[in-house]
Design a protein around this nucleic acid. Structure first.
Length: 382
DNA sequence: CCGTGGAATTCAACATGGGG
DNA sequence: CCCCATGTTGAATTCCACGG
């Protein structure tokens, strides 16, 4: 992460005389303590914030002000630059940039400008709390309005598309030529099925070992569960469906392991990286990287789409990404009639509203529920 | 109870590096 | 020297929580 060291950004430090309670003696100090304060839980957040603050400091420099002197008018100008950069903010097509400000390849999407505003608001909020400034200029700057995407529905695969993909994955295994190709097909089939049935995020999968699968006593019955880490460093566990367990067994059998995890397999990755040198899945000890997951999935999807004769399904597959499988999991569960609370627990949402977004057609859902209720009534003679 | 501030993550284009 | 998986990083999205 040293490419993101803050100290590389702004070598000229103003004489710092702000009164503050964080003990900052320079601009860099302030930024460092802000990052430390706000990004305790996540490398990703840290990286994002550093990127934003880096770009913002270049802007501050261009208007000849230190960040604690920036006005909301300056900020409005900054938003405009980001969305509609003038030539002195754009990286030239042919030559190397001559100006320090030539950092943009194109205007940012409005949602990204909104994101920038949010991060700056967090930053200036911190400055306000630490009495470096007395008014937050961001809160007085122009609001950035944009449509929240939130159309999860469009981001899930249809039943047909998933079935097509699942079938395709199996065919790849049976048609594979040579051990290398076969290993890959087996691993890919397992990866996609795991994503679909478990609905976990890509990041939860990285570095996971077979020990994450355990049989546990829950309530009155014993169930297989899968343990992993969620967003924000939170541990989470899900109940495994029979289908997921079957896929696990199939995968383990195909690489010569015991059908079910023994509990002492911290050296066996759940999703293995297939390197060229040891071309067998059996010996693989390193987990796939996050970039690797994307690569593999993109490859599968585009090939499956090419092999598919149905134009609509083909399009669906082409537009899917890793995260699509999480959406697909949620949407399919709810459509198949799993109740919202169970789905919420499975996905690890803390707020039920998040889960509700996946409930596609409320009328259809209500109708189904009414049918269920009618049946329950008549079965119990009420 | 919902709108928004805040936090954490995924996406994708380009860069890199080691093995055959 | 090429191939392919992995790194890097700017951009875009997703999700949580809390206060009016």
């Amino acid at each position: 992460m040293n490419t993101h060291e803050i100290s590389q950004i702004s070598p000229d430090i103003d004489y710092w005389q702000q009164e503050n309670v964080i003990g900052a003696e320079s601009e860099i100090d302030v930024i460092k303590s802000w990052l430390e304060f706000s990004c305790q839980n996540s490398e990703n957040t840290y990286r994002s914030y550093v990127k934003e603050i880096k770009r913002f400091l270049i802007f501050c420099d261009s208007v000849g002000k230190s960040f604690h002197k920036i006005t909301s008018k300056d900020l409005n100008q900054y938003y405009t630059i980001l969305e509609f950069p003038t030539d002195d903010w754009l990286i030239p097509d042919v030559d190397m940039p001559t100006l320090k400000t030539q950092i943009l390849t194109k205007g940012l999407n409005i949602s990204s400008v909104g994101y920038t505003r949010k991060v700056l608001n967090i930053f200036y909020g911190y400055l306000l709390k630490s009495s470096v400034i007395s008014v937050n200029p961001v809160s007085l700057s122009r609001k950035i309005k944009y449509e929240e995407p939130h159309n999860h529905i469009g981001k899930a695969l249809s039943f047909d598309a998933w079935l097509e993909l699942k079938k395709w994955l199996s065919i790849q295994v049976s048609r594979a030529k040579g051990p290398q190709e076969r290993s890959k097909a087996i691993r890919n089939k397992w990866l996609l099925n795991l994503l679909y049935y478990s609905g976990v995020r890509r990041s939860s999968l990285i570095g996971l070992t077979m020990d994450c699968f355990k049989m546990e006593q829950r309530g009155t019955s014993r169930v297989w569960i899968m343990n992993f880490m969620m967003k924000g460093d939170r541990p989470h566990s899900i109940f495994m469906t029979d289908q997921l367990l079957e896929e696990l067994k199939a995968y383990r059998a195909s690489i010569g392991l015991h059908e079910l995890p023994t509990g002492k397999e911290t050296h066996i990755p759940v999703i293995a990286a297939i390197s060229l040198k040891k071309n067998s899945l059996q010996n693989a000890t390193t987990s796939i990287s996050s970039r690797g997951v994307n690569f593999v999935i993109q490859e599968c999807l585009s090939k499956a789409a090419a092999d598919c004769h149905d134009h609509f399904i083909s399009e669906e597959l082409l537009h899917a990404t890793t995260h699509t499988f999480r959406h697909t999991c949620a949407t399919h569960w709810l459509t198949l009639g799993v109740d919202v609370v169970a789905t919420k627990e499975h996905l690890g949402h803390r707020n039920i509203n998040t889960t509700m977004v996946y409930m596609k057609n409320t009328d259809e859902h209500r109708k189904n529920e009414m049918d269920k209720l009618s049946k329950a009534f008549s079965n119990s003679g009420l």
